[in-house]
Structures are given as structure tokens and as C-alpha cells.
């Protein structure tokens, strides 16, 4: 998969792989991530890095529910490292690649391409406009429930991982 270096406008090869136990220390010492990722150490957490370096650029925690009657994958958290957030970010498409990866895992694990998540209103609006997630119900101040069905998920995979 490729992410974009916004300084040079060039595509850079990136990799998403399972997090290793020693990564938690690096995440904390880098001070580039705000979330407490150690709290997810018993769940499926993946990191995105450039092919040529070991520095972690983004993280995602997913929980597949493959049993019949469920068959959806829940994204519990996504975080892009500070240097690549906001107007001054250096690299683009990190979150897109992580979300598309979660979608691909949804197919692979028998969750039929369905992704669910709960996000605060501002982020939810962004996920709706940028990633095609649909609103399926509000949880009030806690956030919005959102879904990506297989067709939208496959579009994300084609766009970010293709």
C-alpha cells in the first residue's frame, strides 16, 4: 500500500502489521500518540509504518465478531501520530489505509466486509464524508454509531490498498 509524502508529493510504500510487545514502549517514548494503547494489548492491534523504517505512524484496534447473527468488525480505536495530523502533516492517507485494512480483515475473518464504530460527532461527520460510513443511531454525548457495508468497504480497499 502507498501513502503520500506531502512535501515531495511522492507515493511511499507502507506496511501494516500486528503490533509487537516491544512497540508499546516505543509508542510511549515517541510521545506522538495520545491514546493509551497499552490498554488494548489483549486485542488485535496493528501498526502502520514505512517499509524502510520502523517508526510507527498510525495504529488501529479491531475486534471481529464473526459468529452467525453478528458478522461485523468493530473498530475500537484509530490514531495517526502527531507529525501527520492537522494542517502541517507530512504524510497523508495513514488513517485511510488503516480503515481499509480493517475492512479487508472484515472480509478475511468472516465479518463479510461490514465495519462498525462509535465516534464523536465531529469525527463521525468526517468518517461519513471522507470514508462513506453511514449513521445508524446516536448515543447522545457518547457519539454516533456508524457502519460501512461491504460495497463501501470494498471501495475503501480499492482506493487505499489497491
Amino acid at each position: 500500500m502507498k501513502i503520500i509524502n506531502l512535501h515531495t508529493n511522492e507515493e511511499v510504500e507502507a506496511i501494516i502489521e500486528p503490533i509487537q510487545i516491544q512497540d508499546y514502549k516505543a509508542i510511549k517514548s515517541s510521545k506522538e500518540f495520545e491514546f493509551n494503547w497499552k490498554a488494548y494489548k489483549d486485542k488485535e492491534v496493528y501498526k502502520l509504518r514505512l517499509e524502510e523504517t520502523s517508526a510507527i505512524l498510525g495504529l488501529i484496534c479491531i475486534v471481529p465478531y464473526p459468529d452467525k447473527g453478528y458478522q461485523f468488525l468493530h473498530i475500537e480505536a484509530v490514531e495517526v501520530g502527531k507529525p501527520n495530523k492537522g494542517k502541517k502533516k507530512k504524510l497523508d492517507k495513514i488513517a485511510g489505509c488503516l480503515i481499509a485494512f480493517a475492512g479487508r480483515q472484515s472480509f478475511i475473518t468472516g465479518c463479510t466486509g461490514v465495519i462498525m464504530l462509535v465516534a464523536k460527532t465531529e469525527v463521525a461527520n468526517l468518517y461519513h464524508s471522507k470514508y462513506g460510513f453511514q449513521f445508524i443511531g446516536s448515543m447522545g454525548t457518547l457519539g454516533e454509531r456508524m457502519v460501512s457495508d461491504y460495497y463501501n468497504t470494498n471501495e475503501l480497499i480499492k482506493k487505499y490498498l489497491g
Binding site: A95, N125, L142
Partner: peptide, 12 residues
């Protein structure tokens, strides 16, 4: 702000 939040989120 939404721009600062960017695409990161955590489940409540």
C-alpha cells in the same frame, strides 16, 4: 477542533 482531531478516534 475537528481539524486537530483529524481522523483519530477512540470508542467511548
Amino acid at each position: 477542533s475537528p481539524i486537530e482531531i483529524n481522523e483519530s478516534f477512540i470508542s467511548p
